[in-house]
Nucleic acid binder design. Structure first.
Lengths: 207, 207
DNA sequence: CCATGTGAAGGTATTCACAGCC
DNA sequence: GGCTGTGAATACCTTCACATGG
């Protein structure tokens, strides 16, 4: 089944696999079986094989998958093969935490610009990134930045998204706990942290 | 179809509905139609009606849903009808951001304790919560805390989860970018922020 | 007339089981 | 023997269409 559209759920898991592959690459092995990778990342081995089957034959029966080759392919599919430059809007507690977070580098993602509306913050440097006036968002395009991260209060979220869309951003990660609208050509992923915590009690049998 | 298990995907959406309902409650209306709620939260109206149908008849044909009654029911289903007390482990950038984040209160969730391993942080107060030595985790049970939030570096995540499980925590929100194991009676939700950003480029047509 | 609630249909994702290959 | 890749079976979720009720 070589040529097939990749299901969304598979795309969601690809970064997990990629992380697992990169980690096991540091341990000297050249190949990894779907079973070992399964133990590593917490996904069934048959699910892993099925997922990989959507985009080609990367495994060798009896041996496993070539770690480096597979990692490279996953990066290519996720379009992470080029370094991705992102801009952060909103340098509050959460924004500052994101600037300090080393995890983005794992995927070749880099937050290279930060914007805020608060004059007290503008001009300061947070985790090596200088905070700029929000009116300077217009410079994103010429700086090759097409990913936006929204970490502003709920009330400012739609306005911020509109601005980002206006300056050519193509993908937005929104941390504000609300629905935001954007043209279809711009992909928005909303990540509401409180919501995740909120569904935890449902799964706690009693008490 | 009155008595039916609620699908996981519906449970995932319940907090969205709850937020929408609480917000529209502040606008004076007593009832809301599935169509209006749909515009509000970004979910189809038929999906909303189907979701609500899993746990009872709350709507009145021709009128809509009673906002207060429905919100109360959703809270009950999610077990958010009692205030939930959570403990945070790891008061770094992300942990501090979580302590300052007002969004948890929306769902009746409250971070009432914080722990860290760094002597420089212990004893200090962050957003009104005193940072305690990690060895004091044993006091959670008597303080009625059964939710844990893990915001420690990857290398300390499994250790932290083990500790939390040991002191009777029943649900864990893990921000460390790795799989963590826990007994089946403890529900773990892992939220890897970088992973969400990592799948964004896939959906960006070109460039 | 308007909006809910729900069977039925359609689509998507997961799991299984095993043929095929190293 | 070990492990991949994949059709088939199953489970799950979404969408539709409309009967039912206020």
């Amino acid at each position: 089944m070589r040529y097939h559209r990749i299901p969304d759920e598979t795309v969601r898991r690809l970064p997990i696999y990629l992380r697992g592959l990169m980690l096991s690459a540091t341990q000297g092995c050249e190949h990894i079986s779907s079973k070992s990778l399964a133990d590593f990342v917490g996904v069934n081995s048959w699910q892993i094989r099925k997922d990989f089957s959507y985009f080609g034959d990367f495994g060798t029966p009896g041996v496993g998958y070539n770690i480096e080759r597979l990692a490279k392919e996953i990066k290519k599919i996720l379009r992470l093969d080029v370094i991705r430059r992102a801009a952060l809007v909103g340098v509050g507690y959460l924004g500052s935490a994101l600037l300090a977070y080393p995890g983005f580098r794992t995927y070749g993602l880099d937050i290279v610009a930060a914007f805020d509306i608060d004059p007290a913050k503008i001009g300061s440097t947070v985790s090596g990134v200088k905070v700029e006036k929000i009116t300077r968002l217009g410079t994103l395009q010429e700086r090759g930045i097409n990913l936006g991260i929204v970490a502003v209060p709920q009330g400012a979220a739609q306005f911020t998204v509109d601005k980002l869309v206006g300056v050519g951003v193509r993908g937005i990660l929104n941390f504000a706990p609300c629905k935001v609208d954007a043209p279809r050509r711009v992909k928005v992923i909303t990540l509401d942290i409180a919501m995740e915590l909120a569904r935890l009690p449902y799964y706690m049998p009693a008490g």
